[in-house]
Design a protein around this nucleic acid. Structure first.
Lengths: 196, 196, 196, 196
DNA sequence: GATGAATGAGCCTTCATTCAT
DNA sequence: CATGAATGAAGGCTCATTCAT
């Protein structure tokens, strides 16, 4: 399995750095290879083509993303607690890896439609997780029984995404982790009382 | 003023169509010129370069956007009504112009960082409008006095944006205008009750 | 029509020279462009891709080839005379254009199967001409009534081709036009007396 | 001597199959190694480089070719009989090994000039054999005393080559061995009566 | 003002060959 | 002897922009 060989991660990590520092359109394969400390051709022993690097990058980092959040919320009782943990983890991960934040929020969105469709495939896992928390909350009575799960999921994901993108666009110059609480409260009240 | 000459709008309208139908990366200047019925070189009599077409496109269409919303909410009393009108108008405009929806939600996001920074400049007018409604609501007592206007604005814009993007990604196959009411209620409860 | 513009022929003529002097695999597009005195990109205003240059080259030069032979044999009475004129013209044309001889006999044969199939399409016109002369000769009684036209055509074309290739491989250091008579006599006796 | 080791022939036979099935330009060293059941690097223990594989391939198969024909014509009295046996054997060998026919008639001709010059070195043995038969025929009075041996050799080789190539290009869908007789008669009459 | 032919910089990918094991 | 992971040079093609007419 190529994914377990050290050079696989080495190249993906190099890609994150190069894209973050140079931008998507200036991230030539040769630049990624140099950053990874391998020859250009070596890239193609681990990835089918340049697009495959980017898809794999997203899968590795976001697969990881979903896993980490799942672990974190496992011990939580209420949907509200799970939601808080999710927002916190989401913000923490991207706050801890400024390069990754730039790549996911800005650079990777410049990719063509095909790549973005594949990225969306990966995102589906995350969106499902959000909807699951919302459904749990409805069942337990924490959230309004009339809550539209799909819309609420779009609100939650849209709000987190917009919050992170604004932070990245402002050169990450404030502490986004401090926004987790306030954002959580905002989202929570939206879910709890949508119909009074 | 070049902006008042017929070919100026002709080229911008052609750009919307070409980008929507071919995608950002397949929207060559020559294709836009052909669609607009002018020679390639003529483009450069009205726009500094290709990026300038896209910035102007966004300015024209989103300036229009902000104006229309301002007109619509002018007669509304409460912040809640203004918010509803804004969501409705936002959804209506994009619902009425499928090409524009594709361009703003998907294609234009593939542009490079510089272009997106300029697009954000244009968006600031819209974001200010949202923040103004929120401030009005706080002053009138409709919204919680502790509401973080900046965060709430990110929630509102992020939710609307995510909702429209999801709709476009699903090939606009359902009626997004019907979602204005539910989305409005969701956002409203977030603003009203964030601190209970 | 692009084919009538001066740069079309200019590029084809440049291709013949570059391929003859550098070999098929060393005939880069940039080298052809330089020889033609145009920019690399200009090539692609006249040809779809590199392969298209080579196909067009062959079509132009061999179309010309067939036309010239047709003109020459038009006034000839007997099949024998036509055959002689054909061999003479075939040898003369390639003798007059040493670069073209190298390209057709050696370099263009290194192309891939697809290109060669298209080259063969062009050659069919020539092969038909040979078969037509043979059929005329059978009808007039000059050639044996049992002559297998297809085989005889292969003999004629194979012999001429082999003769020219040998001459090119020997660096064109003897006069191939002097071989037209002897080759003609050789081929003629093959056609006249195949069954005695 | 490396040539006597089993892997030497193993690699050459693999090369014939790979080139015939994939074409000259798709016959990568790694593909040949895989077909031969050895590692890529092993190739270079038996051959200096890729070109050396192809030259050796031609030497082995065509050396064999000449030997077989020499054996076959050894017992024949007249030049006409020898010529017939040669054409028959030539056609039979290639008819019996469809892969080899594709490689010699189509694929190997795509090689560069250097390789083809070396291939011609190998072919000289065959061409000498043809000329020897022709000289014998002149001495015995079977062939015209004025026959140009060099030209006649080009006719004979050119005709056989063109006949086989046409057969391969037509996907070997007819029986080429049946053409040996007719081709022989055609060539023979060319040699016997070239000056009447 | 309008044209459109011409420009030319820039990059992903392949694959023959090497060499540490 | 044998392996196969790693190397790195090399080129066809696109398209935003210019400028002579």
């Amino acid at each position: 399995m190529k994914k377990n060989k050290p050079k696989y991660r080495q190249i993906i990590d190099a890609a994150v750095i190069v894209i973050a520092e140079n931008g998507y359109h200036q991230a030539q394969v040769s630049k990624i290879a140099k950053q990874a400390g391998v020859a250009d051709g070596t890239i193609y022993l681990y990835f089918k083509n340049k697009e495959d690097i980017l898809i794999s990058l997203f899968q590795e980092k976001m697969g990881n993303f979903v896993e980490m959040i799942e672990e974190k919320i496992a011990g939580k009782e209420t949907a509200a607690e799970k939601l808080l943990m999710m927002v916190e983890t989401h913000f923490n991960i991207l706050s801890d890896d400024p390069h990754l934040a730039i790549v996911t929020q800005l650079e990777l969105r410049q990719s063509n439609k095909d790549l973005r469709l594949k990225i969306n495939e990966v995102l589906k896992g995350y969106l499902s997780l959000v909807e699951q928390i919302l459904s749990n909350g409805k069942e337990s009575g924490e959230f309004s029984p009339t809550l539209d799960v799909r819309l609420a999921r779009q609100m939650i994901f849209g709000t987190m995404d917009e919050t992170v993108t604004t932070w990245v666009m402002n050169d990450q110059k404030y502490d986004i982790t401090e926004l987790a609480g306030p954002v959580h409260r905002l989202l929570l009240s939206g879910c709890q009382k949508q119909d009074n």
